[in-house]
Design a binder for these strands. Structure first.
Lengths: 223, 223, 223, 223
DNA sequence: AATGAATGAGCCTTCATTCAT
DNA sequence: GATGAATGAAGGCTCATTCAT
């Protein structure tokens, strides 16, 4: 679509290979030669098609986000006619599975996680198209669950609490693999983990809604 | 203390510089020459004192963890005579401030975050000494807050929910800076954020304790 | 011929330069930079064309042997229809001139001598193609001259006596230059030296043939 | 003796270690650190005692020659009252055993052979003390065996023929090991080889004495 | 006198990029 | 349009040497 009539076979293979290699080895450790070898194209192709290693990286990132969103569409989480709790639960399910997918998406997730933790200028490009929509959706859903008397910052903090719980399983995967790998050992366990996050978050939000909580000192009989 | 009578001035400066440069540029992008230049020592010093770039990296990592723990000791979070809620709240406060410290700790956090997201063999070394103790503490505290009828995996999931909320502000800092930088704009806001996480987590755990929650379908009137 | 359509100009120049520099300075003392400078090619060319310094060395060695054999073909020494004495005399002439050539072959000899005195793994490669044939030829020729009643080891010792006399002028050139440089001062003198070696060897072999010699105690009137 | 009152323990150990390491790895490949490690002395000792790596090498060479001559004294070869043939036979025996000694002398021979094939400025130093005497002895002995009507150059050529046969087993050891290792497989075989060289040489020289030989065309019935 | 700490020059190699075809 | 050959910059590391003690 971007370049109208090209032998995009090479270009596409290059993109796929780049996602894989960049994900596995990081930007610097990935070599243009390896990417080209994996894509079975000429070593000069990267410069020809993308104008350099960095440009290829940026395109790979967008490509990875797009493909991830396509594989795991938010679906009913975006359907504003559904109950907020259901939308949130659905989002967490989809989001977590997207993060932990190691089969279809292959290495997309690693690439994205790497970019978020260690952002390059390419991150700005994907913020608007891939990340912002999720925030927007949650900004719409959360007030229904926690009440409407909260400031925007409080809402953001809740959003971050929810996303943080999910992203933990991606960004700190290395730690989880060493401490408690069972919690994501199978698709079934991942489901349970998603249920946990939803339950945990909804419980907290529900408590927020009851409004009694203003400071952290007033957990009267609760605790 | 380890090596008694060494002019470790150079070695120490090297370590400090290494943390900084590795944090900013990552292992591969960081050059030995740059590190040595910043430490104002001879370019061969890295090999002389540490035996190579990789060894220096591993030491830098340990050093960063150690210094971070020293700057932000868990303190009363480890005091088992205190109420569990207070211990957890304290831990979150300390942990979050440690994660978001940009002044004293400088670049330690970035280095650690990078290593967790993109682990090298050096990670194993710091798991036991720096990360495991935090898990152990939380494994001791959480059952008091969520009841004792839960499986180990459920406890782990709660631990991950709490840590995830905190780490969100470190690992996804780049996203936060772009979406809602206000929530960590000042020490005061960071305090509020820590309070939020504590409140959010205690609320959820309290709900868990009430035991009513078995599936995600029983949020009674709330939704 | 091996690689059909390559701009092997650079590769060839590199090979020629490598022979020269390796011969003059030895493997370790020779620097890739110097070789490339002498060949007027890029410093990275060694790795590009040969895959490293060691590989270049191995190729240089083969190249030197091949070129030496091409410049000084064994010719009639290999012609089994000629008299054995003539074949041996011819071999010694050719071999000695090959060893002492300082003009056409340039530094090939030094390189080979170095490798033989101080062998690397590359030696095995050239043994079969360059050295073994000479042994085979001599194993065919010598029995005609010394009689056929000798053991294989005796024949080998005679071969080594002949080769040793020749190689003396290469391997111990440094000593000869200091003690009696006149014996190889000119092409004419080299010819005389070759004649000497042939005469010396044929005399000894002839004596062997007479069979009277069993121990070193029977030099009748001589002593 | 050279340096009057020194803790020459270190210096001597250094010298012994240097001979070994230089012999095994060559001048450039041998590292000062390895030599010092093997000698169990400080890395700076080489410069302190010898003034640099090169100086140490030169001293090692002299030391090796001296020790070799001491281990294998020419003995009766120098006794001018003995018959010339016996003196020559004796010399060959001693010389060959010295060259092939792998036990007592250890690596001395390798070091010497290396230096002869690939001479450094240190060679001049040992020429006068170690090599020249052997030539002188042979210059005295040979005329008795080959007659006195020969030119000095002819005598030199005969000397070189004899030395060459012996040195073959040192300088081209790598080839012999690959082609016919049996001829030097045991002390007994080495003895046989020495006998062969003596027999071969005496036969040739005896023929020279008969004077009939002027050109290489007059091997009458021999061929 | 003798040493351990520290240095700086230089080496081989890798790699993204360019250029002629 | 697309490629294979070739490049030059830079990186990590080794090592003989020096200097303060």
């Amino acid at each position: 679509m971007s370049v109208p009539f090209c032998n995009d076979q090479s270009r596409d293979r290059l993109l796929v290979a780049a996602v894989e290699v960049f994900a596995e080895r990081g930007f610097r450790d990935a070599t243009v030669r390896d990417i080209c070898a994996k894509a079975e194209v000429n070593p000069a192709s990267v410069n020809y098609y993308f104008g350099g290693k960095e440009k290829l990286y940026a395109e790979s990132l967008s490509f990875a986000f797009a493909q991830a969103d396509q594989c795991y569409p938010l679906g009913e989480a975006l359907n504003s006619s559904l109950p907020a709790a259901q939308r949130l639960t659905c989002f967490i399910q989809v989001f977590l599975h997207k993060l932990l997918d190691d089969t279809v998406l292959g290495h997309h997730g690693k690439l994205i996680a790497r970019e978020i933790t260690d952002p390059t200028s390419a991150l700005d490009g994907v913020m608007a198209t891939a990340i912002a929509p999720q925030f927007d959706m949650l900004k719409e859903v959360l007030p229904c669950l926690m009440g409407s008397s909260w400031s925007e910052q409080d809402i953001y903090r809740c959003i971050l609490s929810i996303l943080g719980q999910c992203l933990m399983y991606k960004h700190s995967r290395s730690v989880i693999d060493r401490v408690c790998p069972e919690v994501i050992a199978s698709a079934e366990e991942i489901n349970r983990t998603a249920e946990h996050i939803a339950k945990f978050s909804l419980a907290a939000l529900n408590r927020f809604k009851q409004g009694a909580i203003k400071s952290d000192a007033d957990e009267p009989g609760g605790l």
